[in-house]
Nucleic acid binder design. Structure first.
Length: 399
DNA sequence: TCTGGGGTCCTAGGACCC
DNA sequence: TCTGGGGTCCTAGGACCC
């Protein structure tokens, strides 16, 4: 197996991303504690973090901690644009970029030394380019493995750079708290701490079977490998999304099934639009519920054929929602969501523009006539209507 | 003013097929 | 009539991440 001997993986992670975009766009927010999101904290500037405010914290608690904090509503499209600008810088740095989320990515810079300098020099330049071209602070960790690079950026935050030389890996890793391990959240952390295990080094002294007995098979083997700094994963480009979803918090006020249905229609419309825009189709529809007592449930149904059709997915989501109505009535609904999974590319589908300008004008018979006229009467085995702003298209899926 | 919105991966049981 | 084991798919739930 190829073993990397040089630290050539970069983990680049924007600092307090949403809050930094707000501070960039509004000079009055600079140097001040800024909270993005009112109900819960979506992001907090470092000035706000100094008061103990954290992401996902309730808005009320955040304001208690820092009454002077400036609360701004999220501007998702601004963050999406900022992300694109930053990823452009990543792509200009190396062709090997693996995005992890809207604000972080792995970059493999092996083989670039002659043209671009050492990994450390590349990382420095990357930070400067992101600052100049996107106006945002970013932290970079550099190491031999993905995991260690991510740990390094976490330690170096904010606005920092940290290279972990191959010879110093365990000395760097083992004193760190177990929560630094990727995959150790509140539940696993509590289990480990309950057994007196507080550092990565202590995890490394446990055998794999013992760890498996504590946290389960996959997680146990994963933690064992990471604690020994074994992480053979490569930087992968071109990963595809495996699900597309949307959800909406309903508040504590009791909603009628008709109200919830209206929310459901909006969610299905949003999600299927995104599917079609990305040219993906999916087979499994999942409806998520959260109840008054914060318990959760999901219901799913798998269709015989993948689709991105609003009406098909809506009918399935409604069926799942109605089947769950007794539970919803009993426990009270505070959130509803839908997701489409089992995704595949909409390849092989032929698109035909149909003469409809508005949804209300769709006539199935007219559509079928148009399809038959274009492809012949037995060319069509199956079709779904896909909405577009400029018209309507029908993909013909080969049987 | 208790708790948003977007995801990933794993586990486990049952159905079904060979 | 009684019998085994393996593999895949579907559903539901859980943990985790940003």
């Amino acid at each position: 197996m190829f073993v990397r001997r040089e630290a050539t993986i970069l983990h680049a992670d924007l600092d307090a991303f949403y809050a930094s975009v707000e501070q960039r766009d509004d000079p009055r927010l600079r140097g001040k504690p800024v909270i993005v999101g009112a109900g819960v904290v979506l992001a907090a500037s470092y000035e706000a973090k100094a008061y103990g405010i954290r992401t996902a914290m309730g808005g009320a608690q955040a304001r208690r901690l820092c009454p002077n904090a400036i609360v701004v509503p999220p501007r998702m499209s601004a963050y999406s644009d900022a992300s694109k600008a930053v990823f452009d810088v990543f792509e200009d740095t190396t062709p090997s970029v693996e995005g992890l989320s809207i604000d972080e990515a792995f970059l493999d810079v092996s083989g670039l030394r002659r043209v671009a300098g050492s990994p450390e020099a590349i990382a420095e330049r990357l930070r400067r380019d992101v600052r100049e071209r996107a106006g945002l602070p970013i932290t970079v960790g550099v190491a031999r493995t993905k995991f260690l690079a991510k740990v390094a950026s976490g330690v170096a935050k904010p606005d920092g750079l940290l290279v972990v030389p191959p010879d110093d890996e365990l000395a760097f890793l083992h004193p760190l708290a177990v929560e630094r391990l990727w995959g150790v959240g509140p539940i696993t952390s509590a289990k480990l701490r309950g057994l007196g295990i507080r550092t990565v080094g202590q995890v490394a002294r446990l055998s794999a079977p013992i760890l498996v007995s504590i946290v389960g098979r996959a997680a146990g083997l994963h933690l064992h490998a990471l604690a020994h700094n074994r992480d053979p994963r490569r930087v992968e480009t071109g990963k595809r999304r495996r699900s597309v979803g949307g959800q909406s918090a309903l508040g504590r006020r009791r909603r009628s099934p008709e109200d919830v249905d209206a929310v459901l229609v909006g969610l299905v419309d949003r999600v299927t639009r995104r599917l079609r825009k990305g040219k993906r189709i999916g087979r499994t529809v999942v409806v998520r519920f959260r109840f008054d007592d914060f318990t959760r449930a999901t219901r799913s149904h798998t269709l015989p054929d993948p689709t991105a059709a609003t009406l098909t997915i809506l009918a399935t989501a409604r069926m799942l929602f109605h089947a769950t109505l007794p539970v919803v009535r009993e426990k009270g609904l505070t959130l509803i969501g839908i997701a489409v999974t089992n995704l595949q590319d909409e390849d092989g589908a032929t698109q035909l523009l149909l003469p409809f300008e508005r949804r209300s004008e769709i006539d199935v018979d007219v559509a079928l006539d148009a399809i038959k006229g274009r492809f012949g009467s037995d060319a069509v085995t199956r079709g779904v209507l896909l909405g577009r702003k400029t018209g309507w298209t029908v993909p013909l899926l080969p049987e």
